[in-house]
Amino acid sequence: MLHIVNKSATDRGSLESCLRMATKGSAVLLIEDAVYAVTNGSAAAAKIQAAAADLKIYALGPDLAARGMAGRVLDGVNVVDYGGFVDLVAEHNSCQSWL
């Protein structure tokens, strides 16, 4: 399954809910304000790095750039563009958006 989160982890609990529910081998794509979670020094950084052991973590590049965070992405996080976003949706049987 592909999980998509679009809210900042320091504003809402949706990333936490997602990580609690995502099963091993699932993909988690962070977009919009959710991308702050995968940047160096963020409060969620440790949680993301721990989760990356069991999950594939992706973040949308244009959203990182628009937030001045293109150069601060945590190791182990895969940055994708809009084409990569489409590929992820196509590759997975189902998709859950944590609105």
Binding site: S8, T10, D11, D33, Y36, G61, P62, D63, A65, A66, R67, G68, M69, A70, G71, D81
Partner: peptide, 23 residues
């Protein structure tokens, strides 16, 4: 304060999301 501090970051490039860079 809170996530508001993110508004002031340097190096913002909004071309990819096609919105105005008001930073």
């Amino acid at each position: 304060t809170d996530d508001g501090v993110y508004q002031l970051l340097k190096g913002i490039d909004t071309k990819g999301i096609e919105v105005k860079d008001f930073s």
